[in-house]
Design a protein around this nucleic acid. Structure first.
Length: 539
RNA sequence: GGCCCCGUCGUCUAGCCAGGUCCAGGACACAGGGUUUUCAUCCCUGCAACACGGGUUCAAAUCCCGUCGGGGUCACCA
């Protein structure tokens, strides 16, 4: 059976790159009727964030990705948090140590750095010098007594070449001399990534390791470790990377960078207020502006909101908050470095599973194109079906704290169908903002383009009268009424609809006029038209 | 810098492994036009690429070599 695994380290939210890796692992497992495992690689105590595991799980679930074994669902190969598997790693470390395939080392970080700097100065690749004879237990105790760190290194067999058979890259060979003895157990007792990864993949029965290209250079080390431990070798697939528009890996720094640019572009900004509103010390803000530090993700978001700027989404939650559909995210992400081979692009999860073939993973890096994502989202909004759409819409309204959450399902469903063709939920919510304002504020452009036009007061007055005489406030009656008004005055729809739209929303943008009127209700409509008539008279 | 990977329209890609069916197909974007009560949607048309240079071959986007360009990686991070 095919077993894949997604193994994130819990350092924050799930980002696009992680989601893409998880997606391909998931598609691989599901297409082949195999198993998917979620394993949390939390071996770096300094970097771990307490809530990150929960966040990652939530984000994966939102995308519609599930797994058969993992920290939240359990399974026969648990625990699925590496921090809880210390005794397992210790056993294998001891085995290697006993067999002379690993040894202790005691260098302080600064000593290691000095050795490395020396190598760089001599333009040589730094390779840790293996000692003539390996330290024994007595040496370890002595080192501990001196307060030296005690780590364990793997004895890397010196082979001529090391070959990795990769599903996407083909056969890749490395000169053996490139690889020195690397650390497998850190001085805090935790395994390094390499060791935890190799041991767990074996114990969990992982058959296919699908991961980012950045791990390709680690693979020789992993294979050597597998050989030394007598482990099976999983199949490897090193995926291309998705880069951001500035080039380089798509990273959370992109958000901070954009924000920094915005703040610097506005010299008259009230820094004290900005710091206060976003929960930041003024000194921290200054440090950020000076490029010396970067605040945490939530603070970045808070600042952006305060300034009213749109930051590039990089974490999956950002896309959720911006009103994208998980179906669109998955579909779009899947097509970054993969294609079904024909001209299909818009696909459901089921279709993706059905069509997935790991051999079709592309070798080339790809650039994330938001406009295409938006086009996908538009199409998926159209395709998901009313029930799911409503559910997603409500989830969106909740997280984005839109006032629309107060509305009942029936109204929300109505809004959804009145906004067919919308690109994102954000767009829909924005268009409905007029339902919640106390007093209409007129957009100067709308005033100029519509309200100042000849005969508007007269038409609006007629509309007001006709509207007030309407007994039934539904789509049909409203539509008929507007049509009659057009005929009577011998004008087009726009001439009537636009002044009403501006009167009730203050802008030229809203759902179709009859829908807007229904949503707003008769009473408010008449009131707003009266106000507008007054406004025009005063001008 | 060493090592590794990659190079088809602006972007995502199909085609490459098994050379001719490709003066390179689709989608997004862009430009122009159309539909529409606004925005969005929708429809039509157009623009646009085999990184470069050498080979091999009757024939190369497809195979080989080199150059250039991009990315990754060189931790007691994962």
């Amino acid at each position: 059976m095919i077993v894949t695994r997604f193994a994130p380290s819990p350092t924050g939210y799930l980002h696009l790159g992680g989601a893409r890796t998880a997606l391909f692992c998931w598609l691989m497992a599901r297409h082949n009727g195999g198993k998917m495992i979620l394993r949390i690689e939390d071996t770096d105590q300094k970097r771990n964030t307490p809530t990150a595991t929960k966040q990652v799980i939530e984000d994966l679930r939102w995308l519609g990705i599930d797994w058969d074994e993992g920290p939240d669902v359990g399974g026969p190969n648990g625990p699925y948090l590496q921090s809880q598997r210390r005794d397992i790693y210790d056993r294998y470390i001891k085995k290697l140590l006993d067999e002379g395939k690993a040894y202790y080392c005691f260098e302080r970080p600064e000593e290691l750095k000095a050795m490395r700097d020396k190598a760089i100065a001599e333009k040589k690749t730094f390779i840790y010098p293996r000692p003539q004879s390996f330290p024994d237990i007595g040496d370890v105790e002595k080192a501990r007594a001196e307060g030296r760190p005690v780590a364990v290194r793997f004895v890397v067999p010196q082979l001529e070449t090391i070959v990795v058979e990769d599903i996407v890259r083909g056969r890749v060979s490395f000169p053996g001399g490139e690889f020195g003895d690397f650390v497998i157990q850190k001085s805090d007792g935790f395994p390094t990534y390499h060791f935890g990864c190799v041991v767990d993949d074996e114990l969990m029965g992982v058959t296919h390791v699908i991961r980012g290209q950045e791990h390709l250079m680690n693979t020789p080390n992993h294979q050597l470790l597998q050989d030394a431990l007598g482990f099976r070798r999983p199949a490897y697939a090193h995926m291309s990377v998705t880069v951001s528009e500035g080039g380089g890996k798509l990273s959370k720094r992109d958000r901070a960078k954009t924000l920094l640019k915005v703040i610097k572009g506005k010299p008259d900004i009230d820094k004290a207020k900005l710091a206060q509103e976003s929960g930041l010390e003024i000194s921290e803000l200054e440090s950020f502006l000076a490029g010396q530090s970067s605040p945490d993700a939530p603070i970045i978001s808070a600042m952006a909101e305060h300034l009213g700027v749109h930051l590039p989404e990089i974490n999956i939650v950002d896309f959720f908050h911006s009103g994208y559909l998980p179906e669109a995210m998955v579909n779009f992400t899947a097509l970054l470095g993969w294609s079904p081979g024909d001209d299909r692009e818009i696909m459901s999860l089921e279709e993706l599973i059905e069509a997935f073939d790991i051999k079709r993973l592309a070798k080339t890096n790809s650039l994330f194109d938001r406009q295409k994502l938006t086009a996908f989202n538009t199409e998926h909004i159209r395709r998901v079906g009313p029930e799911r759409l409503l559910k997603h819409f409500k989830d969106y309204l909740t997280v984005s704290e839109s006032p629309l959450v107060q509305k009942d399902d029936e109204t929300l469903a109505y809004i959804l169908q009145a906004n067919q063709g919308a690109q994102t939920f954000e767009q829909i919510a924005d268009k409905c903002g007029f339902l919640f304002i106390e007093k209409v504020e007129f957009d100067p452009k709308a005033v100029k383009k519509v309200l100042r036009k000849e005969g508007v007061a007269d038409l609006l007055g007629q509309a007001r009268t006709a509207l007030s005489e309407l007994e039934v406030w539904d789509k049909e009656s409203l539509h008929t009424m507007i049509e009659q008004l057009c005929q009577k005055n011998e004008v087009g729809m726009g001439k009537v609809a636009q002044p009403i739209r501006v009167a009730i929303t203050g802008t030229t943008i809203s759902p179709p006029i009859d829908d807007s009127l229904i949503l707003l209700g008769k009473q408010k409509t008449l009131k707003r038209i009266d106000d507008t008539l007054g406004y025009i008279a005063h001008e």
